[in-house]
Amino acid sequence: MTADSTTTARLGRPAARRTPNGSMGHSARLSLRVKRLLVLVGVLAVWQIAGMFSLPLLLPTPWAVATALYDITFHGDLVPALTSSMKLLAIGFGIAIVLGCTLGIVLGRYRLFDVTFGPYLNALYATPEIALVPLILVWFGFGLGGRVVVVVIASFFPIFINTYAGVRDAPGNLVEVARSFGVATERGLLRRVVVPAALPFILAGLRLSIGRGVVGMAVAEVYLRLGGIGSLIVQYGSAFKTNYVLAAILPLPVLSIVLTKILGMVERRLDGWRTT
């Protein structure tokens, strides 16, 4: 999802440069869309031709994938799997937000916690989550609990690190201003100055972590095969129904991109003062 947005930006810039006022003109935008569509059509055409000349098992044609997607959407398991996956993601991401923000504020604001807990959190950050998955499932169970922990660990760090940085760099002079006007308690300073000052960082952290959360969700489900998109993928994979595998994978990047876009919109809305 990150790769997609950078590619978009890279493709978008030359077209934007052509108009003198800096904003993309109507025709430029249209031609950009046409170009993108042409790339898609080209890739699909090559894929279709290549698929027709190879074993369907190795490379199913786009048409076969589309048929499979239609099948699992309307007669198959996609909807319940997606519902189950979304539930897992919502719970895991929710916990990651609470945990990431809380720890970010505590470590960012209080030096004692920063120096005592910081190194261990960094060590955990440096450990690939996927290596921990088997252990987490043993510890937290093969039910929803274990899977939620995987999603939490996957999406926790961008939220935590951004909150931490935002709180730590909260301008000290604004804290002074609030104190001079009678904000006397630590809670008041957090609520009125430190957290609002860190909010742009926190929101960016949420946007960055949702994609990782989707990855964590898929990983946990692939390991567990107990419902959700991940288990669907494994299930079709072991049956060698390659076109169904691809059809089940397709919703994942879509989900990731849509959620990232939504969080980006929330960010721009709440965070208008930064860009104006």
Binding site: L174, E176, V177
Partner: peptide, 9 residues
């Protein structure tokens, strides 16, 4: 304050 100390948000 010298640096104004206004809340940007």
């Amino acid at each position: 304050f010298q640096q104004f100390g206004l809340f940007p948000w």
